[in-house]
Design a protein around this nucleic acid. Sequence first.
DNA 1: CCCGATGTTGCACAGCTGTGCAAGGACCCG
DNA 2: CGGGTCCTTGCACAGCTGTGCAACATCGGG
Lengths: 350, 350
Amino acid sequence: MSLTDDGVRGFVSAQQVAERAGVSRSAVSRAFTPGASVSPETREKVMRAAAELGYQVNDLARGLLANRSRLVGLVATRPEVGFRAHLVAALTAALIRRGNLPFLINTGSSTAELEAAQAALFGYRAEATIILSGSPPASFVELARRNGQPLISIGRSEPGCDHVKVDNEAAAREAARLFLARGLTRLGLAGSASGTPSIVEREQAFLDEARRLGAQAVAARGADSDYAGGQQAAQVLFAMVDRPQAVFCVNDLIAFGVMDAARHRFGLRVPEDVAVIGFDDIPEASWDAYRLSTFRQDPAEIAVHTVAHLDRRLASPGAAPSTVRLRAVFVERASTSSSTTSSSPRQTAE
Amino acid sequence: MSLTDDGVRGFVSAQQVAERAGVSRSAVSRAFTPGASVSPETREKVMRAAAELGYQVNDLARGLLANRSRLVGLVATRPEVGFRAHLVAALTAALIRRGNLPFLINTGSSTAELEAAQAALFGYRAEATIILSGSPPASFVELARRNGQPLISIGRSEPGCDHVKVDNEAAAREAARLFLARGLTRLGLAGSASGTPSIVEREQAFLDEARRLGAQAVAARGADSDYAGGQQAAQVLFAMVDRPQAVFCVNDLIAFGVMDAARHRFGLRVPEDVAVIGFDDIPEASWDAYRLSTFRQDPAEIAVHTVAHLDRRLASPGAAPSTVRLRAVFVERASTSSSTTSSSPRQTAE
DNA sequence: CCCGATGTTGCACAGCTGTGCAAGGACCCG
DNA sequence: CGGGTCCTTGCACAGCTGTGCAACATCGGG
């Protein structure tokens, strides 16, 4: 009798639980399957034995039988930076709530390792893949389609797959009009050479709307869409003879770089000398050092719609791909309106 | 013959590849197993057929047989915030490089869902679990031990499991001595009521060293260890009659809150009126708005040692748990030394 | 008391892979 | 040409679970 082996090494199987509970292995399986036909007392016996042995249903075998697992892949480059970090956190929380297990595939690794990780998504029969950024190799998209694995993209419209996006054009156009409504006509754009679809949309819509309304608009782009990129763009914009009176930044990190360069390198005041608008509304935007006016994206809302996509796709795999477009609402803070009251009256140093 | 079904639905199995390649199923399995005994031409035939059909080895079956998988769980609360975001990114990259698939279990979910997610780690026979923060329920630790699943903790010494930590005490003591060496004797500590082990170590070591050296040191704690918490602590520290001349903050986010409160709410200059030291050296610390002196933790270095722990533990499961202790080096910036040259000469606004 | 219905349980199979074992073939050396 | 050795290949089994199907028990009603 192997009743006394405590499972010190290896895992406990349903067979061992069945022996200890004095029932068949099927009964154990049914006890752990909601809605299966088991008597209450049998289930009770099984559960007690399972608890004593520390039994966990083997999801590998379960998934092998069902030919699908509860894993979901999240593909992202630099998942620790800016808005994306919040998106990843919201998505993992939502997926766990749904009963899934979210993978995080960090695209920063080498190409070979990355491909291996993506292949593993199929190897483990992942329920779906969610693409946050970075373009997956075409072979990956092809494989997903072939194996019937749902592919959901966020912020970029991969052809033929569900996606949820924010209305970048509308927000960027609104930014241009906001500046003009305040009488600011020399406009600047702080963009990025990284060329993400969202970034490009924001850049083009802002420039287009500004020029359509007869304003002057110059663009400067840093290497990446981060703080350093914002400083690089600012270095160009503020060195011009007719420096812009207002700058729209394609995300908040860039805006922080622009603001800091304006203040600490060019001695400009924000918003008196230059107004600044960002995008994303990450928590840092409300810090006293910045008080940045920006367009809010709600990570939780995006996560909710992503999970809804997932539910719909699994329910009807053949349905046509659909798109959810969310609106980014403007949040005004001190970087645009000089009249905004400071959070508390300033005291002078001794 | 089912040679022509393109696998439009469902996944391709090794059996189908074998038929197409005209070999046995074992040959397919061996072709995908490094070091197995296969002739080059057979492997070639198999690989061609596999590529044509889009075959992926079923890792569920493979893991079922081996009774272990390539999955690794990362358990973290608020994985999007501060240093932890960088740690998560570094760990996922290192794990992918090692051939693992990193799960991200976001402890922010409800307890029931969290327990389900952690149970799934055993269900999928994860190779190991890495705990970044948040105390796992005792039942989880017990289960891990029972099933022989390695448990690695970062920053907190879970009894009986490998861990890697930074020498918080040494750094905090160094901070106290640094202030005193500059002639600053009224010291403040900005801590947090969250009570994370690392935080507590930093708090106690700083206070202890300061008092040991005869300095006056007062502590103030915000609710959480983030920006808002720093502001709350500052509200207490700077309202005192003998406000501190220098504040040690248990992490950088708290330091930003303290600095902003000092400047924008109390009109104090940093470092002339109050010197500030943080902890972590996240990228924001080098931004022009803060230029924060702080203790550097290198996420990549921590990730390397974590993976090394993992390798060692899997090689010899019975070995005694070991600890790696890293040193946090001080990085001096403008928040402590007023003599530090500003990044570029300031220009006055018009 | 007997019959039907309902609920419960066990058997056996499917799902896919890795690998020990034995058999077969090729090759080399004497 | 013969024998031995090594490489390669196919067979069959193990690993763990979910579930259809048939058998069994239990219970209620006539």
